[in-house]
Design a protein around this nucleic acid. Sequence first.
DNA 1: GTCTATACTACGATAGAC
DNA 2: GTCTATCGTAGTATAGAC
Lengths: 201, 201
Amino acid sequence: MSKPVQPKSKDTSTEEKIIEAARKVFMQKGYAATRTRDIAEEAGINLALLNYYFRSKEKLFEQIMLEKFRQLFSVIFPIVNDDALTLDEKIEILVENYISLLIENPELPLFVLSEIRVNPERFKVRLQIPDLLRNSSLVRQMREKRPDVEPVHFITSLLGMTLFPFVAKPVLFSEYPGFNALMQERKALITGWIKAMMEMK
Amino acid sequence: MSKPVQPKSKDTSTEEKIIEAARKVFMQKGYAATRTRDIAEEAGINLALLNYYFRSKEKLFEQIMLEKFRQLFSVIFPIVNDDALTLDEKIEILVENYISLLIENPELPLFVLSEIRVNPERFKVRLQIPDLLRNSSLVRQMREKRPDVEPVHFITSLLGMTLFPFVAKPVLFSEYPGFNALMQERKALITGWIKAMMEMK
DNA sequence: GTCTATACTACGATAGAC
DNA sequence: GTCTATCGTAGTATAGAC
């Protein structure tokens, strides 16, 4: 019932070892296909201990999910709402930071999207991305520059060009050797394209 | 061991009822979270009969998966390889057809991507999309027009701008009322943008 | 072909010793 | 805090009657 107190903790704490293992296994197989036994084995502990620390598979998963969700969206908000940045700067930084993050964590977006897909109501409350974007500095700047086009179209294109290659990686780039280099190269391309799209009448 | 022969078949055959139910439940929950009992119930039959027709959950799933996979990619290949079409025509038709398909089947791409993600080796053999695209008429035309940019960048952008909104729908557009209208409107935008991207030096 | 009943296994979770 | 052993259940699949 009560939170367990930190154990002796030599190298990494047991709790952290479990989290680490859960990260790996959940990310690989998804929630439904993951067995708590796999996580315990991966962590080098046993099943009972996992339940001692986290009470249930579901509770453990929610921690991982929240962490991954934050990781995926923390890139956006600080930039999107920063009034000190011009529209062009926002675009540059967004693309740069996102692709860098995704090169390090290529499975991140598809993992999050997949889990939300099969359990939308469970994660609905926490995330109101559309609302958070709607009155952002970015949207205001876009509307000012291009009152004739819904800002959502520009944002969707930016995110699509940036995130989609990683989302589609298992299908389109599974054996692609130069994928990361290609994504690096893509930063400048996307930035240029988006800027041009916003000029085009 | 042997394939069951068609039953009396009044309205829809039992086999078709099961397939129909499997489509619905698998698409909704994904393979791992789906219980064969759910499918049986949805089909209005019982569990034993499902196994009589399809031998196992896995076999049934593979049929659905193959069907959905084809649905998702059948849009691409006829167009991409048609030498009679100009580059601009290919772009127009691809975007038009894809968005129309996805408005009718919004969950299609994320379903396929999610299942391949958690089981890449199982579906790897059947699908060599990259190879199929590599020497296509589309890629040749792109290389001719723009020898300085990898065609994969244009293709990824086209697919990203087109597919991404549907892939991200559970997160970005879950409560968005005018989503379909927005996607309709998007057809012309994407087409124009891609053409412009290919002109930009 | 279709049903009921059941075998069998796998999984999540807990009891209880240390 | 960590383990072994086990309970309870839910899930796939099959046997066998009709």
